[in-house]
Simulated assay, not measured.
Amino acid sequence: MIHCDNLVKIYKAADLEVVALQGLDLNVEKGELMAIIGNSGSGKSTLLNMLGGLDRPSAGKLLVDGKNLLNFNERDLVKYKRETVGFVWQNNARNLIPYLTALENVELPVLLQGRRKRDRALELLEAVGLGHRSGNKLNQLSGGEQQRVAIAIALANQPKLLLADEPTGSVDSKMANQILDLFRELNRSMGLTVVIVTHDPLLAKKVDRVVAIRDGKTSSEMIRRKSYAEELEELANGLNSEEEESHVEYAVMDKSGRLQIPSSYLESIGASNAQRIRVTVENGRIVLLPPE
């Protein structure tokens, strides 16, 4: 569904240049449920905006559903945003119109698709568990319910790719759990590819893969050991061990053989501020040592 190869994004303001992405590589399979994490300024939101057609790459390759976004003109971008991708923002003011009901908010994008708006809008609200709140204005809905309406709106154009920017950032942990469960259900029932940018550690327990971005590049990936369904079944049968980590973490190596070592690892060997590090091979393993 997504293929990023040596992706670069440079922002220019007057004489200042900021490199947000520095040759990022990433592949996301169709039907995958994955998260992107990283500190502020790491480039994760820049990547999400480019996947959503809201920003253009400066260099590299960006393919989504077989479409090369670097070759798009403005008309192509509008068509792409209307037919391929759905977007859920953290800030509900960007998702919703406050003086409309939940149903009316969802009807607007459905109307743009030329479909029978009321039936389709009700169907979408039912899909996110809010059919019983369709006639409520936004000020009568909780933050979590408003975010569910926003997800229904993002599904209105029947997208192949759903992007979510900090979707649990403004709700409590219980509601965050429910929203993440909803993403998993939509991923499973509709075959949606879902990419979520988040700071929420709960998410690592829910998604299949977590990609960490640091300094504009993918630095590590966490892959689920067992499927989420298998873990739930083991938990129900009392077989799940809390001591076992749900994911395995891998460092990501680029085509030149470079990788980013987690800072905690470097600190543990006293090399956190070192510009050089010794690399040796011992018993079939690559070993990193602090400078002498």
Rank of each mutant, 00 (worst) to 15 (best):
R285C: 08
N283S: 14
R278V: 10
E249H: 05
Q260P: 07
Q260R: 01
S246K: 13
E282W: 05
H247E: 01
E282N: 07
S268C: 01
N273G: 14
H247N: 15
L288H: 07
S256R: 10
N273I: 05
N283Q: 14
R276D: 15
S268E: 00
V281L: 13
G257F: 14
K255T: 10
L259A: 00
I261Q: 09
A251S: 10
S256T: 10
E267S: 15
T280F: 08
S256K: 15
H247L: 05
L266R: 01
N273T: 12
L266D: 05
P262A: 00
E249C: 03
R258Q: 00
G257M: 02
E282I: 09
V281P: 06
S268A: 03
R276Y: 13
V287T: 15
S263P: 07
S272I: 04
Y250V: 00
R278S: 14
Y250M: 03
P262I: 00
V248Q: 13
S268D: 05
N283F: 12
V252K: 00
V281C: 13
R285Y: 12
V279P: 04
M253A: 07
L288C: 09
I286H: 10
A271G: 11
S264L: 09
L289N: 11
L266I: 05
L288V: 01
G284V: 08
I277Y: 07
S264N: 06
I269W: 08
R285D: 11
Q275S: 13
Y250W: 06
I277V: 04
N273R: 12
A271Y: 09
L288I: 01
S268Y: 06
A274I: 05
I261P: 11
N273S: 14
Q275E: 11
E267L: 15
I269P: 10
H247R: 11
G284L: 09
V252L: 00
V287P: 03
E267W: 08
Y250F: 11
N273Y: 13
V252Y: 06
I261H: 04
N283V: 07
Y265P: 08
L259T: 06
E267Q: 15
G284T: 04
E249G: 02
V279D: 04
Y250H: 08
I286W: 11
P262F: 04
I277M: 02
R285F: 15
L266V: 00
D254F: 04
A274W: 06
S264Y: 09
N283K: 10
S263G: 06
Y265F: 12
A251D: 04
L259W: 07
L259S: 07
N283T: 06
R258I: 08
A271N: 04
G257E: 06
G257T: 02
